[in-house]
Design a protein around this nucleic acid. Structure first.
Lengths: 210, 210
DNA sequence: TCCGGGGCTAAGCGTGCGCTCAGGTGGGGG
DNA sequence: CCCCCACCTGAGCGCACGCTTAGCCCCGGA
């Protein structure tokens, strides 16, 4: 059990099933995961799953919704607290990346198993994901409007930023050479560069060449 | 049939099966695709698949190998032809991104279905993928050594560049607002910024704000 | 004209899937 | 004390999967 994002889920059995599903989906993908595997990870019989969830897809939907809501909240909070637009961009990317690294198991499911959702669930999740994109784009727009950033193609650069942040979930390993915060700091610096930040030099980046 | 990368595959039935598999894997993912679906797209009965390929996984392996070999070749060629390290980075990213956009169907399979490969096939493909990473890292290293680039964490920045380029395959749609070449140009500019390029301003970027 | 064999299909094998259901069990309210 | 019912299990249903097999068709060579 790798993730503590679902602490509020009750009853206990439902939470264990959710955590088992997160691990299984992250390891093998939704379609390659069996309900028997999920139930086994939760220490229960296959039939128990259907007391708490109607289908396997509903498990994926719960995970996706909670995960997306959390990542959007983290992003929104980071943006709110920063004083100017360069700090906002750095804080946003740093927090968003840190979330994807710390919760890389959940994040992998949330970001890469969307296609397995049923159409109406998919629409709901995509709307949440669009919120993340809009927050990032808003920061870039503010920066360009104030003359602090130099970005030609705001939509394209936003998309690139999203790719950058989200993909962390795919390669991040907790036993790797960087902590979530270090990756966040590096990526915040890269984001400022991509935005053509022409303000103060981004000193204080935790450098670790090699 | 969306991709022309497998023109050399013979006999005709084997190629049609490969193209059908690419489309099906890209749409639904490997595990959600049935051999009946692949055979159907090739206009054949399910049994015909097994005359040309031993298993469904072998189809995925063929697609992955040919696709990776092509993208590495495209990257290597771009790097070879450019005169200085900034031009090399721009050309590399531009060509790599363009390949992922033009062949987005194949690229999606190649980049996001690796986990379904059998261990020994997986190792072989990962080795190819590592070649791409090494080429990009080499360009960054040269640039830093020559003082043209300012990068603290070369490995981390390389990883970020890879994320950026590869993720194009996930969101690119041919009916979208940008051509593969336009995306390539935008991303080449972003890459130069990420590398802290302190040379001539990257004029001539196909700008399209909004 | 006949034959051999590559390329293909119809039919189907065994398996493991998502999910169901009848029944057991144990802790809290009357 | 007993009953109730939320929770869980063992057994298994129906199905679709990956893959196999037996045999048909058709084309090139003698």
């Amino acid at each position: 059990m790798t993730d503590a994002s679902f602490g509020g889920v009750t009853p206990d059995a439902a939470r264990r099933l959710l955590l088992g599903a997160v691990d299984a989906f992250a390891e093998r993908g939704f379609h390659a995961t069996t309900t028997r595997d999920i139930a086994g990870r939760a220490g229960m019989s296959p039939a128990a799953l259907y007391i708490h969830y109607r289908t396997k897809e509903e498990l994926l939907f719960h995970i996706s919704r909670v995960g997306h809501e959390q990542s959007v909240a983290v992003l929104a909070e980071a943006v709110e607290q920063a004083p100017d637009c360069a700090a906002r961009l750095a804080a946003a990317v740093r927090a968003f990346v840190r979330w994807h690294a710390e919760h890389h198991t959940t994040a992998r499911v949330v970001q890469y198993e969307l296609a397995a959702l049923e159409p109406e669930h998919y629409e709901l999740i995509v709307a949440l994901r669009r919120r993340s994109e809009e927050i990032l784009r808003g920061v870039l727009e503010d920066g360009v409007a104030s003359g602090r950033f130099a970005v030609d193609d705001i939509r394209g650069t936003t998309l690139a930023l999203m790719s950058l942040c989200v993909d962390v979930a795919r390669w991040f390993r907790p036993e790797g050479r960087r902590t979530p915060d270090e990756v966040g700091a590096l990526y915040a610096d890269l984001a400022l560069r991509m935005a053509g930040d022409c303000g103060a030099a981004p000193a204080g980046v935790t450098s670790s060449s090699g």
